[in-house]
């Protein structure tokens, strides 16, 4: 009996499965549902209203998002006749899968038994994977064959070019400071969280993640007043839900990466042996930190409007990019001085 349980556990906690399916798919779904609820509630508080309420007032409307999800799942998926059918269906699915893929390659523990891949270049692999999914948003916009979608897709393309460099640079500044591409070593090296040592890089990363996931004030591709819903204009039902969820899942993946790099990963906990203390608890700590980070992300919605496309790009290149360079420089300086 114990053998069977062990077998099941070892299958579940086989790192690629655990991280892709449990943390990646299920975990991100739960976190995204919670975050969307939190975002709606927090925005409602700032805006002097109640937010989701009527489904279970005692839980402050938390099941509302589950209800939304069910609604999306059972809505008819309408595929316009003029759309490119295969790409139209595939694009959101691929984009969603790709947006959680970075989670499958990052370490959630320092115990080498539970690393999904060899960790030597994991930060590079994770960053490389984050850059793949936005292409499929452009594909979605193009496949819809709708003017608003295409404009939205083109905007998305502009925004990608702006944030990608910044995101990579600011996150890589940690590896410059520690002089390694190994995420585990980066986490272990943080006796003081890296955010305190290099707040500039963190701020740049924060802003670039906002841009990457269409958070306010960079919610430009889907800006509903001119381009309806941007690339997602023609989508409905589950595909639309996937599209909208993909941005949050991507934010979740980015948040996990940022937690590992800037917020000390699983610290203050020291992973031990065995599944429980070696894998489950540290991974939960990382996910919880990522959720808190996402809660901070979601507050921008209630405070800012959106930038114009060219202003966002200008801000990205003129302000945030130098910031990222500065953060990188600071990291090099710290490495030279041996702070970390």
């Amino acid at each position: 009996m114990a053998g069977i349980i062990d077998l099941i556990l070892s299958i579940i906690f086989y790192p690629p499965i655990y991280q892709l399916v449990l943390v990646g798919l299920t975990g991100s779904l739960v976190v995204v549902i919670f975050i969307i609820w939190f975002e709606r509630k927090a925005t409602a508080r700032v805006q002097r209203r109640l937010g989701p309420y009527h489904i279970a007032p005692r839980l402050a409307g938390l099941p509302q998002l589950v209800a939304d999800l069910i609604r999306y799942a059972f809505q008819e998926v309408i595929i316009p006749r003029t759309a490119d059918r295969e790409l139209f269906v595939l694009a959101p699915i691929v984009a969603t899968v790709l947006s959680i893929l970075p989670i499958a390659v990052v370490p959630l523990t320092s115990n080498p038994a539970y690393w999904p891949i060899p960790m030597d270049y994991s930060i590079l692999v994770a960053l490389a994977l984050t850059t793949v999914s936005p292409i499929f948003l452009i594909v979605a916009g193009w496949a819809s064959n709708n003017k608003f979608s295409i404009i939205g897709g083109v905007r998305e393309a502009f925004v990608i070019t702006a944030y990608e460099m910044i995101a990579i640079m600011s996150i890589l500044s940690a590896s410059a400071a520690v002089l390694t591409f190994n995420l585990v070593e980066i986490v272990e090296a943080q006796r003081i969280w890296y955010i305190l040592l290099n707040p500039i890089a963190f701020l740049a990363a924060f802003l670039s993640v906002l841009m990457a996931t269409s958070g306010f004030p960079f919610e430009i591709p889907e800006s509903e007043n001119e381009v309806v819903a941007g690339p997602f204009t023609e989508y409905s039902g589950l595909l639309y839900g996937l599209n909208m969820g993909a941005a949050y899942m991507k934010r979740f993946a980015f948040s996990i990466l940022m937690v590992l790099v800037f917020l000390g990963g699983w610290s203050p906990y020291t992973p031990g042996e065995g599944i429980l203390s070696g894998y489950l608890i540290p991974s939960l700590i990382v996910v919880a930190k990522a959720a808190i980070l996402m809660m901070i992300f979601s507050l921008t919605r209630s405070i800012y409007g959106r930038f114009r496309l060219d202003q966002a790009l200008e801000g990205a290149w003129r302000l945030v990019f130098p910031m990222a360079v500065l953060g990188f420089g600071l990291a090099l300086l710290e490495a030279y001085l041996g702070v970390m």
Partner: peptide
């Protein structure tokens, strides 16, 4: 300033919603 005002209302929402 903007963030301060936002946080102020996040803490103390002053709702007027009629249920």
């Amino acid at each position: 300033d903007a963030i301060t005002i936002g946080l102020k209302y996040l803490v103390d929402p002053k709702r007027i919603t009629l249920i």
